[in-house]
Write a protein that binds this DNA or RNA. Structure first.
Lengths: 335, 335
DNA sequence: CTGAAAGCGCTAACAG
DNA sequence: CTGTTAGCGCTTTCAG
């Protein structure tokens, strides 16, 4: 059972391969009649187009590369699903690369995608490196690039971002409304825009409430569970505080574990708000108040933007996806 | 800045494209000298091999398709990482497809991969369909197929499975040792081998303890959180039971939520053991005793098996990956 | 509306 | 050790 090509179909039908190719592509310059004839014959012979041959000829492929830090994060796996939902029906294929938050792996992933002549790249940055020539390379090769969430605004191309500022602002407002005053912030890498914006939202809410944000109240690069635990330990030893707004759920988890270990009552004596609404957030005890990012929608938008780029219809726009605060136990009233 | 091909570098060097091709491929039939010459020139000119052209010519591609039910499950995302760890350094690329536990999407995913002429397919079945002609198609096209975890033993090719029987057996033995006697089972789809084996392990442990397993004690297709909650509700209303062994952590979670809602004490009055060690298992309250499957290792093994197939070295072997019981609070002593 | 012809970039016989 | 030749399967001018 050898493979069927358009030549086989052509021979069978007594036409030329060109006609078959056109017919299959739905070209209107070929008669309705032959188009149907070809389609039927193709079906009958079990023809399967060879994507690679077509791509080689066209110098373009229908495969889109998606580069993310890790796929086992709730946020990213939902973005992926959102991207798939749009891209697959449109006839594009997705190849997913994990960077593991490693700048070097990110460069390699992009290089590999480029070597494989993908039609476009959708990417969320791994870490703050300061080196973005791999992205510049993508742009200079005229390969459409869509960045999402963790973006570099200086690189050309579409960008889809979360409303980090509002998310953080809402979170801190909520803590203030529940009666907390000495609110510290466990931040991410402030060189990354997403985290910088969360910090700004925190600061804004605090200042509006007439509270000063001292440098000692901000713990940078504190996004892992361990970092959260450790930072909370230091915090309890060093200064007076009654709440923390964490830039991620994992550090919030660590913080809560530390507070529980020291016998601090949550909520009441201490309020905690996280960010991302990881699946465990609603299951932990106390359940974690957190900011939900609409990852699926973000994936949809990133994919749509990519398709627009591929069709040469748009570029260089930045879209903001709204977020919402999910109130749970960990941020209940201060007593 | 147009693209450099082997022809360009051949012309530059005054040799033929074939020589360049061979040199680049590390063929020993070309002199050490020219090989180095070519390599340097390629570097200098910024040559990037066109993977598609090579694949087209060879009729084979270095891309491996990976088909999983969902990537946001702890187990599967770790398998993916395990696969990547082996495949990427070996020069293969991975394209990941989610089926969302949908048989139709699984068929489509496989068809798409085949159409894209992937070098091989690694797959974990979505659901019990009874129709496996899409897998037969893979086999009949001589595309290497490696199944893992949720496999169909009747389809040719390598298989990597978890030791589901032992995992379940250990789990139930543990409950028995803690003093529980009326142990029911929230099972998955017993048409899928993985779940059937867990059921067998449960049954074996029960029978060894001289306890009969009545049909009323087995709740099939109870793997989601909602199903677990509901089944537990029914269980409490209908019959006497003091423990449940769940074929998944999500149903265990649902079960625990229901028990808590009814004021049943866990552990003590009721023991619960799950399966999979999802990240939330250690974070919930009470923390969940569960069976850890070594997903990463499984990914490694699946990838290695694939590479062996690709090299024509082996096929049709079944490998078993061991599992381990993680004891936490939910299965503490019966009182 | 269809055909002829050329070629995308690379590899693999077959010669020498 | 290297060159010649042919072609993977498809698309796309350019003619008619």
């Amino acid at each position: 059972m050898k493979k069927i090509t358009i030549n086989d179909i052509a021979k069978e039908l007594g036409v030329t391969p060109s006609t078959v190719s056109r017919a299959l592509a739905g070209n209107t310059r070929v008669s309705e009649k032959t188009r149907k004839l070809v389609a039927d014959k193709a079906q009958e012979m079990g023809y399967e187009p060879n994507v690679m041959a077509a791509s080689l000829r066209k110098g373009k492929s229908d495969t889109i590369g998606l580069v993310v830090p890790r796929i086992n994060r709730h946020f990213f796996s939902n973005v992926i699903s959102g991207v798939e939902e749009v891209l697959n029906p449109a006839g594009y294929n997705l190849v997913i690369c994990q960077t593991g938050e490693d700048a070097e792996k990110e460069r390699k992933a992009v290089a590999t995608l480029l070597r494989n002549r993908v039609g476009g790249i959708i990417l969320s940055l791994s870490v703050q490196t300061g080196l973005f020539d791999h992205l510049d390379e993508v742009v200079s090769r005229k390969v459409p690039l869509v960045q999402f969430d963790r973006i570099n605004p200086d690189v050309e191309g579409d960008k889809i971002v979360n409303d980090n500022f509002s998310g953080a602002y809402m979170a801190v407002r909520h803590l203030l409304e529940e009666g907390y005053r000495h609110i510290v912030h466990f931040a991410g890498d402030l060189g990354l825009r997403a985290y910088a914006e969360r910090f700004d939202g925190y600061k804004k809410a605090m200042e509006e409430a007439g509270l000063e944000v001292l440098p000692s109240m901000v713990f940078e690069n504190t996004i892992t569970r361990d970092a959260g635990y450790e930072a909370m330990g230091k915090l309890l030893a060093d200064q007076k505080a009654d709440a923390v707004f964490c830039a991620g759920d994992y550090s919030a988890l660590g913080a809560i574990e530390c507070l529980k270990a020291k016998g601090v009552k949550i909520p009441g004596d201490f309020g905690v708000v996280g960010y991302a609404n990881e699946p465990f957030a609603e299951l932990m005890y106390p359940s974690l108040t957190t900011v939900e990012q609409n990852a699926f929608v973000m994936g949809n938008k990133a994919a749509s933007a990519m398709i627009r780029c591929l069709e040469g219809k748009a570029f260089n726009m930045e879209e903001v996806v709204p977020v919402s605060l999910i109130k749970r136990e960990s941020s209940g009233k201060r007593r």
